[in-house]
């Protein structure tokens, strides 16, 4: 499904990603862990096509298609979804309108009929209940005045509505209370399917109790320095990153 080979990316002339290699097959869930500033969000953003970052080397394909050649919106319509670590607000634009525009852009791309306001409302209400967001949130501005946890649930709501092929979840578990963590995990588990790949950035092994990953990778200093199974997360929790030759608070590599 997703294949990343020797990916290098920089921002303002400074190299952040220094040769990432990663293969994710359909149906798999991969967790990425690593110290602050190691490049986890950068990798997520580069995959989604954020032009702030310049790809200097390497290749990325999604189902054989060269992802790096496509515009952000094309990638999105082809099924790349990014749940943001810090979701931004769009004042005055209702969540409902925003979501319907997004869903219809995708449906149009697939040659499906666009949903009218009533049809979409019904769908959106169902999904918002699934992530335990009161449907009144649909009427509010996109992320406008949402609490941290509400923003994260709103990201999962979007993932569920957009049915991506590749879902990249950047710290969707951060800042959640215990109940919300359960809700978000259930949401992610609902996303799990045979034909979908999930890349999940997290700092906490506790998330992995709810969402059991197939693989765990450690990203440090712009490289994946260790990969393993579920047990690697437990080991990291116990020992920190030090034993891998990285300092725990190593933010600059």
């Amino acid at each position: 499904m997703l294949s990343i080979k020797n990916l290098h990316a920089s921002v303002e002339g400074e190299e952040i990603l220094k040769g990432i290699n990663l293969e994710i097959k359909a149906g798999e869930v991969h967790a990425i862990m690593g110290p602050n500033g190691s490049g986890k969000s950068t990798l997520s953003q580069v995959l989604a096509g954020n032009e702030t970052f310049e790809v200097t080397e390497g290749e990325v394909t999604l189902n054989g298609e060269n992802l790096l050649e496509q515009e952000t919106e094309e990638r999105a319509r082809e099924g790349v979804f990014l749940a943001f670590q810090y979701p931004v607000e769009i004042p005055g634009v209702s969540n409902l309108q925003f979501l319907r525009t997004a869903v219809n852009a995708k449906r149009k791309h697939r040659g499906e009929e666009e949903l009218n306001a009533a049809e979409f409302m019904k769908l959106a209400k169902d999904v918002s209940r699934q992530v335990d967001l009161d449907p009144s949130f649909l009427k509010r501005g996109v992320n406008e005045g949402f609490s941290g946890g509400e923003k994260k649930r709103n990201e999962i709501l979007q993932a569920l509505l957009l049915e991506p092929k590749l879902a990249i979840l950047d710290e969707t578990d951060s800042g959640l209370d215990i109940d919300a963590l359960k809700v978000v995990s259930d949401g992610v588990n609902a996303l799990r399917s045979e034909d979908r790949a999930i890349l999940m950035v997290t700092h906490y092994q506790r998330l992995l109790n709810h969402i059991v990953p197939d693989y765990v990778h450690v990203l440090a200093g712009g490289r994946i320095i260790k990969s393993g199974g579920r047990e690697l997360a437990l080991e990291l929790e116990e020992k920190g990153y030090g034993w891998l030759g990285v300092k725990d608070d190593d933010a600059s590599n």
Partner: peptide, 13 residues
């Protein structure tokens, strides 16, 4: 840019 990126990431022109 962040708002634009969010919209585009959701497939919006």
């Amino acid at each position: 840019d962040e708002q634009m990126f969010l919209c585009r990431q959701r497939g919006i022109d």
